[in-house]
Structures are given as C-alpha cells and as structure tokens.
Nucleic acid binder design. Sequence first.
DNA 1: TGAAAATTAGGATGCGCGTCCAAAAATAGC
DNA 2: GCTATTTTTGGACGCGCATCCTAATTTTCA
Lengths: 194, 194
Amino acid sequence: MGNKGEALRQRIVAAADQLFYQQGYENTSFSDIADTVGISRGNFYYHFKTKDEILSAVIESRVSDIEDMLNQWSEKYPDPRQRIQHFIELQIRHQDNIKEHGCPIGSLCNELAKVSHALLEDANEMLTVMREWLTAQFKELGLGRDSRQMAMHLLARAQGSALITNTFDDPAFLRQEVKRLKQWLDDVAAKHIN
Amino acid sequence: MGNKGEALRQRIVAAADQLFYQQGYENTSFSDIADTVGISRGNFYYHFKTKDEILSAVIESRVSDIEDMLNQWSEKYPDPRQRIQHFIELQIRHQDNIKEHGCPIGSLCNELAKVSHALLEDANEMLTVMREWLTAQFKELGLGRDSRQMAMHLLARAQGSALITNTFDDPAFLRQEVKRLKQWLDDVAAKHIN
DNA sequence: TGAAAATTAGGATGCGCGTCCAAAAATAGC
DNA sequence: GCTATTTTTGGACGCGCATCCTAATTTTCA
C-alpha cells in the first residue's frame, strides 16, 4: 500500500522542517516546500490538506528526534553531569546554523506566540521534553525540588545566547556562553555533591 | 504647516509599535494599524508610503526611547551597579507584557532575521544601544576589557528568560531569573571592587 | 474670504497565497 | 492484461494584502 507515499511524506516533512527553520513558518509557502522537494503543489496537497497539518507533522518529527537524542544520551552516559554537559555542547555542534538562523525551537515558539497559533502548545512540547529530561538529570544530581528551576534556567540561557548570537552574527559569543554554562554546571554539581 | 500631520504620524507610530509587538511585523497589515488609529488606509498611505517605512519609524522611535531611558538613569544614579540593577529590574516592571508577548526587541529581531529583512540592522541598533550602555557601566565597575562580554551575557540572559517566560506563560520564572541575575551582578561587582 | 496646500477617504489594481478540483499517469492485485 | 486504487499534475478560485490613485474635505495664510 501507500509505501511510496510514506517515503515522499517524509521528504516533505524534512524539507518543510528546514524551510520553517530558515525562513519561518508564515513566510514559507506551499510552493516553497513543493519546489524544494521537486513536486507539484497539487501533489503536496494530496499529502497535507492544510498548512497547519504540515506544521504539526514537523513539530511531531522534531519532538520525536529530540526524545530519541535524549534517550540515547541517557543510555550512553551513566553520569547525569556528563549528560547535561552534552546537552550544553549541542550548541557548539550547531553553531553555524544558530549563527545563521537562531534556535529552531525558540524561533518557532516565538513566531507562533505572535500569531496566537493553536499549535503553539504543540511547539512548546519541544521545550517541555527538554525541560523534563533536564529536570530528571538535575534530580539525579541531587538538586531535589530546585531541579525544575535549574532546568528552566539552563534552557533560558541557551535560548538567550542563541538569539544574541544570531542577531549579532557572533558565534564566538556562543562559544563563550557555552563555556560559562559548563562552568556554572560544575559549580552547581560541586555544591550539591557534598 | 504640517502640525496636525505630525501629531497623527506619532499616533500611527505608537499604534504600529504596539501591534508589531503583539502580533509581529509581518502579521500586522496596513488595515490593522489604520483601524486601530481610526483612519482610512488611504490616509495611512499619505503618511507612510511603504510598510518598511513605518517599521523604520517604529524602530527609530524605540531606539530613541531606549536612549532617553538609559541617559536618564545615567544622570539619576551615580553608581554603575545601581544603574545595571535598574536595567535588570526593567523586566519586572514589564512582566505582564513579557508573559503575553515576549521581549519587544528580541521577538522583532528574531522575526526580521528569518525574512532576512534589510531593516534587521536597524533593529539590531536597539540591542546595540543597550550593549554599549551596559558596557560603559561595567567598565566603570572596573571590568575592563571583559565589560562588553559581560554586557552581552546580561542581554542574553534577559532575552532567554523573556522567551521562556512567554513560551511557558510563567511570570514566576521571570522573577526568579531576575533575582538570580541581581545575585550575579553582586558577585561580579564584589569580585572586581577588590 | 478665497486660493493654495495639506490632509483624508475609499475604491482600483495586481499579486501571492492557501485551498480545491478534475483529469492524467503510475501502480497494485487478480 | 485489465480494472481499481494510489499518486501526480497543473490550473482555477477566492481572499487578503501592499500599493496606488483620484477626488473630496479641511486647513493655512495672504
């Protein structure tokens, strides 16, 4: 059955994901996505009836990617501090993209909040997944009821440095902030191990 | 001469400012602004030929407001630490708006960056003015060549907490982050006074 | 007060968009 | 191989937008 359809569907989602990141959601048209994939607008419509539908699919795909990544880290690294470190260093690996387009999650949430879009809650899920995972790591580190606040603090700082890096076109600042964040993590961990 | 015109022009800029903040630039139409002010689209066009032109006026107005505010603080408070404290507490005064719409500066820069809009550089000016002022304060505090980095660090954290507060609809987090930022400032100041 | 200038009104235009559709082409299953 | 289903195509539709324009109204000031 729809096997060929499924493959194309995934290519569409991947293209839309990229374009939404680079140009924003509202600023990306059906034609943009169709052209990128190399299919007609009509064919696109066959797979996704509305623009919201594809946004939903993109968010779902991103959430699932994030979950996979975090689960993988949970398995791979025994130490919660090490896991959080990896999370922080994620920004270094993506520094070129961040410089060019900011954080894919933050910028999307930002955009959807303006339009008071119904899918903002779905988009929030991307951040929530991270927050919950980070909270669990901080709990393991022994931060108890402060864990959630710490998780949000870390997310906020990551979002902030991504935005400033993008706006000022200054990846060196991003690296600086990552270093600072790792120092902060070490301090927090040291304080709570005793 | 164009005295009445000037007054209306300012009302238009004020309305556009609000709407751009609440709904985003792209998502705000000529009609939206005209309706808010209570004039016809044609009249609007008499004052601003293009959408870019009004965006430019809004940015100019914001930059000038920011400069006025900062200059006022520079005069009013003799201690640079006190000045920076005021800067940090600005977020508390605007917490309701931030919860609802995020940071007016950050969200605009974010949006313009996506569209690779020519006026992004003008929008950056809002952040740059703040950065330079903060840099001067940190210099006075004795941070020397680190001052600029510190200024950007502060800006980034403010941006980050605004975004998270907006996304998670959680003003308590904003207050928490402000407290944390003030603690950070005290630490930094204490370290460099000796 | 009256002519020139500034201001306001609202309709016209053209374009790009999301959406929809009918028909052609490809594929699958008997 | 032939029919039923899936997939693909490209054009049509209607709407909202930025922009433009002309004519009416108000203001200015000699």
